[in-house]
Design a protein around this nucleic acid. Sequence first.
RNA 1: GGUUCCUUGGCCGAGUGGCUAGGCAGCGGUCUGCAAAACCGUGUACGGCGGUUCGACUCCGCCAGGAACCUCCA
Length: 491
Amino acid sequence: MKNSVIIYNTLTRKKEEFKPLVEGKVGLYVCGPTVYSNSHLGHARPNITFDLLFRYLTFLGYKVRYVRNITDVGHLENEAEELGEDKIAKKARLEQLEPMEVVQKYMNTFHRNMEDLNVLPPSIEPRASGHIIEQQQMVDSILKNGFAYEANGSVYFDVEKYNEKYNYGKLSGRNLDDIKTNTRELDGQSEKKNSFDFALWKKATPEHIMRWPSKWSDGFPGWHLECSVMSTKYLGEKFDIHGGGMDLTFPHHECEIAQSTASQGEEAVRYWMHNNMITINGQKMARSLGNFITLDELFTGNHKILDQAYSPMTIRFFILQAHYRSTIDFSNEALQASQKGLERLMTAVKTLDELVASDKSSVDISALKEKCFTALSDDLNSPVAIAHLFDGVKMINSIKAGTETISADDLSELKLFYNNMIFDILGFKEENSSDTGNNEILNETVELLLNLRKEAKENKEWATADKIRDELNQIGIEIKDTKEGADWKLK
RNA sequence: GGUUCCUUGGCCGAGUGGCUAGGCAGCGGUCUGCAAAACCGUGUACGGCGGUUCGACUCCGCCAGGAACCUCCA
């Protein structure tokens, strides 16, 4: 915890020094996915961003409790609204599955994708469906405090009432008057006092499958309730950091603040962090816009706009090479650049093991370390940290080439530093090198061919040697001749 | 329409009131039987018009273009 961490707080729109509520401990809550469909590239962004935060704070010595929810009930969908179906129930009907079967299926996919991306599992991953009682309790306390009202078995949050005492809109920078004049009229039935009131508990229509009994009606909890409930249940009435995508700022996070404040009298969250969107052709990638690419499609290259498959680590690098509060634009060119860049970085990490120490260092390891940590501590500036790591790559290669020297102490410090940065903090891992491991037969077959080629080369039978190289290349195996002999990898 | 934000070289993407971001591609080179890979070196930039300033890509204003949110969304 040597250098203090600065984070940008959406609440104040400023960078602030991070000071945890409890010395040495951090409570972190991030909005997780709604599991009714496959995870797409957009989902990779918050999970990687906050994985970096989780890893970095942990590295600095904080004990972090990271809570990331799974939304498996509740959120209403536009076209389904009239039928009173929620997203999960709607999808279930289309696929003839039990709602919980849909949830399980896509939750499994999400977990697999996150593991591929080397995103660490959170400390607690609560599900909305497992916290219905607690959600009802919060509705109760909001009602008791007079900031909600019941109508036809549903309970709505009384925004106007709340705004008399507190400030509705403080997070997203809106004020209620603006909202009043500019809210689109979408709500057909008006059992609500005002169109901007939101549901805390919704009465289920007869067709609605997912429902729970309550004193108000058989129904289901409102859209924003679960995060307020589960964050404070596991992190306390007041906790440090709440993260999520920028698109959730309003209304989701605004409503969370209102709910927590209305039920407990004060806000729960101290620092709000929001990651920006991934765009494609300059437009947000979203399911509702139909321009998304699933993570599985990216990993396999199985999508019409993809020139090739991109590995999970390439995606991770692509995301970390931009600052989390900037948009990043998807393109094949950008992804390919990321792939090459990451290869260069990882090659240098391997080169570290080949370096030979000298008596003295001509390079400054501490300065390099300092720059990287300063960047990360400055609102998680991973692109600048990575840029410095590339300066280090040049340094490593120069030491190998003999134009720079390094002492034994500095060398072990440099190795430890790159291990910490690359693997522990940025969260990269080795992937698809020649030791494919999972395929012993392939390994041995290629080794056999490479030996044949080596013999041919020794006999100057260039035609045979080239034939082996070219034909392996055609079936997707790339040969790299190095000084130590031939290496290969799957393309 | 309202709120907030963005516009950097062929592509992606940092950053700063005066000091090389970085990656990819391109170009030149080293290595190699040839090639690939790897490594080294290298050019090009801050949407337009005004203003503030000794000095602006960086601050202010206007204009143009784009985005997010205002509705489920990462």
